[in-house]
Amino acid sequence: MQLKTPLAAAMLIVCFAAASNALAAENKITPTLESVDVIHNGATVTIQRGHDRHATLPEIFQKTDRGCPPFCVEPMLAAPGIETVGELEVLDYLHRINQGESDILIVDSRTPDWVMRGTIPGSVNIPWNKINRDTAGTFETPTESDSFHHILEDEFGVNRNAATGAWNFSNAKTLVLFCNGIWCPQSTANLKTLVGIGYPVHKLKWYRGGMQDWVSVGLTTVTP
C-alpha cells in the first residue's frame, strides 16, 4: 500500500494537469492564439481567457440603464480618420509593445476609482479629465491645463515649439484609447480633443468595446 500511494498521487496529479491543459486548449483567444504576455507595472502578466464555464460578468458591467446623457451609445467612429479596433487588435498592439516598440501606448481613459476594479494589462491610466474638463456634465469641454501639456510631452511624445507654441507630432506615439464600453464617452471626448489640437488621426485608435467587452470574453484583467 505504501508503494501504491505515491504512484496513485502522481497519477492523480497527471490527470489534473491533463484536464487543465485540455480545458485551456478549449478556451483559446483564437484557434491559433492561446495567450499574450505583457509588462504591467514592471511585472510580466499573461493575458488569456478564463476557464470557468460558469463565469459571469462582474456586477458593475451588468447594468444596462445608465442614463443618457451623458452615458449614451457611442457611434462606431469616434471621429473621421480614427480607426476603431477590437480585442485582437488591442492584443496585437500589446504584443508589439512587449516586443520593444516604444512608440505605442494603450491608454485607460477612466478615473482611478474604475481602474481599481480592474484594467487591461499593459495599459497606462491617464484619466479622461486630465485632458478634458467636465464642467457641465457633457464630457466635451477641452482644457489647456499644465497637466494636459505634461501628458502630451511626457506620455504621448509630442514636442512644443517654445517660440511659437505650436505642437510637433513627428514623434508622437500611436495611442489606443478605451474606457468602460460603448456607453462611455470619456475616451471619445479625449480623442476629439487630440484631433482638435492636430494629433495625427492615423496615430489614434479607439477600442470602442472597452472594459465591458474585454471582460465579456473572459480576458485577463489586473488591479493596481
Rank of each mutant, 00 (worst) to 15 (best):
N129G: 02
M116K: 15
P70R: 08
Q48A: 09
P185Y: 09
V176Q: 07
V201N: 09
I60K: 14
I182A: 14
T119H: 15
I151F: 09
P200Y: 06
A163D: 12
P58Y: 02
M76G: 13
F139D: 05
G67Y: 02
K192L: 07
W183C: 10
A22D: 00
S187L: 02
K130R: 10
K63H: 05
G165L: 04
L219G: 04
L175G: 03
G137V: 03
N129F: 02
N21E: 09
T188S: 13
A172T: 01
L152E: 06
H51D: 07
I29W: 03
N132E: 09
G210I: 04
K173I: 01
D37G: 04
K192D: 06
A19R: 14
P80F: 08
T188E: 11
E140A: 14
N125Q: 10
H150M: 11
T174F: 01
V14W: 14
D52P: 00
F148K: 15
G198D: 06
Q48E: 08
K4G: 10
V85W: 03
S35A: 11
I13G: 13
G210D: 04
V222A: 07
H149I: 04
T188I: 11
A162Y: 08
L204P: 03
E101P: 04
W114G: 01
V217E: 12
L219K: 08
I97Y: 07
V14G: 12
Q186V: 07
P112L: 06
G86N: 06
I39E: 11
N190W: 07
A172D: 02
S170G: 02
P31R: 09
A79W: 08
T193Q: 14
T135W: 09
G198W: 01
S187G: 07
A162N: 11
V222I: 12
P200A: 04
S216R: 08
I197T: 05
D92G: 14
D65I: 08
P58T: 05
S123F: 01
P75S: 10
V217K: 14
T164L: 02
N129V: 03
V38K: 00
A189F: 04
L219A: 04
R208H: 04
H51G: 11
S170T: 14
Q212R: 15
L77H: 14
G42W: 04
G50P: 00
